[in-house]
Design a protein around this nucleic acid. Structure first.
Lengths: 216, 216
DNA sequence: CGCGGCCTTGAGAAATGTCAATGCGAGTGG
DNA sequence: CCACTCGCATTGACATTTCTCAAGGCCGCG
């Protein structure tokens, strides 16, 4: 099913501006709404008590909905940090519950959003199952560029706002390994890369790195 | 919230007996019900088209509910294979939808089940984020024994029905690495282990292996 | 009893982590 | 506007870990 962004937009009763590096919400916060990313991007992060350690759960781009975990589990499981100046539109649970009793479309849309949230979790787990850093990296590129393409951006070029360290943390490897994996991917001709800008040159190579079983 | 197993049991309209090594359902199957594991255990597996490759998604034990992915996403995302002779009780969507219009408890229970399904996904992802095989292994032991304890089994002893290879696949490492990690955990005194039977001797050591940051 | 799959163990190859030095760039304050 | 600073990114050398391949033992099943 296709998500009706205009409908969501019309339901929103609050627009939030989040400066780069600041929190949209924290784990402990009471949750009262789901949020549609209008522009910008964020990361969600698991923090561990008693240490400075944290783990990047996922990255969220324009037209993603965040806060669904709280709706399903009654509390946020992560902190949300803006990767750049970001604008989100909030739709309160209150408004949603009003709508769900009247509009079948809203009910169906919420179910679709939850299902997508699930698939996304499974996808990120899939990325981690491959131990090779290059394969994780390639899977990451394919994933993020597909999502960009879905919302109308180029299906070849990306500008990544997150740091190398964030990507490393997300993929479960060290920053230095990301540096080397990127250089390696450039050398094979799979991607081009300058500063924060990436370009996919050869999807087939990228796919083969993710799934080496198809090569022989 | 606590799951009312008796209620679920009373809703079930079908009892299925699944022989060891056979399928409870396959990815392509039409899904009509969720299932409560009455006795035994299963693994769910992602299969990749065109190859023999597969990836163990998760293990499911007594009192787990499986088939929720299909309810949320309208199709099974995995195959389910019995690890031993297993009995499940099926609750059809049809019956559930009848109940949800009348019983607030059933609605709430379904929401709780979905939320747990989500947390479980996040937990398994967390296990994979640590690259060290020993750490993954330790996290796996802690996870599985907690779940066993939750349903009334010993919180120290486990009999694992899955093969080494299944565990290896689940944890994203090779079978040989599992052998060595187990031997290593035994040597540190964290676990005892004979054949398929495991015993947790020292939770603190196990936790420190998962989270080395707490040690110094 | 023999077969086949699983598990263990060893040795060497490949990949990632760790540590350290340097370069780079965005953001800060003068 | 410039200089400074701090965190991030890159690169190299070496340590650690896992993978790969191979051999042998064990166990369940026909």
């Amino acid at each position: 099913m296709h998500i009706n962004f205009d409908l969501l937009d019309s339901l929103s009763d609050n627009t939030l501006h989040v400066k780069k590096g600041t929190y949209l919400y924290r784990k402990a916060d009471a949750s009262t709404c789901i949020m549609l990313i209008h522009s910008g991007s964020l990361k969600t992060v698991y923090s561990f008590q008693g240490t400075q350690e944290h783990r990047v759960d996922d990255f969220h781009i324009k037209k993603d909905i965040i806060g669904l975990d709280a709706m399903m589990d009654s509390y946020y499981s992560t902190d949300a940090v803006a990767l750049e100046d970001t604008i989100v539109k909030a739709v309160s649970y209150e408004k949603l519950s009003h709508c769900t009793s009247r509009s079948a479309e809203v009910v169906e849309m919420l179910d679709t959003l939850k299902a997508r949230f699930m698939s996304r979790k499974e996808e990120t787990r899939g990325i981690l199952n491959n131990l090779r850093a290059e394969a994780r990296m390639a899977a990451f590129f394919i994933s993020i560029i597909s999502r960009m393409a879905n919302i109308g951006y180029s299906n070849q070029e990306i500008q990544l706002k997150m740091t190398n360290k964030d990507i490393a943390n997300f993929l479960g490897v060290k920053g230095e390994t990301i540096s080397r994996a990127k250089r390696s991917l450039v050398k094979t001709g799979a991607i081009a890369w300058e500063k924060k800008n990436f370009k996919i040159l050869d999807f087939q190579i990228l796919n083969q790195i993710v799934n080496p079983r198809f090569t022989h």
